[in-house]
Design a protein around this nucleic acid. Sequence first.
DNA 1: TATTTGACCAAGA
DNA 2: ATCTTGGCCAAAT
Length: 106
Amino acid sequence: MFLGYDKMNNFNRTTWNLTKKIPKGKVTTYKLLAEAAGTKAYRAVGQALNKNPYAPVVPCHRVVDSKGYLHGFAHGLKKKAELLRKEGIKIKNNKIVDFEKVLFRF
DNA sequence: TATTTGACCAAGA
DNA sequence: ATCTTGGCCAAAT
């Protein structure tokens, strides 16, 4: 059965693949990514993203935590917030405003 | 090979 | 509301 993540796909590859699917102007959470990938490695997802910081193919800035708070970013959270703002997402004190509204579910 | 770490999460005190 | 604890899984050391 297709669990999104199996031995043929590396964990990070699956993660990036899903991350790429996030529509512009929306965000998702590490948890949802992990679940969509068929795993519970929430933390590992973050690690995977950290390894591919600024690849144009992986919009890691659209990934936040379950509370809608921004966590690390290779370029700095500040930059991340700016990028999100540019996509129409409002950030306040490192937190996403209307988080539920812009949350993309797989 | 074993231990530690981490861009997490949820529940407890 | 803040702090601590335990759990979770993969990658790094």
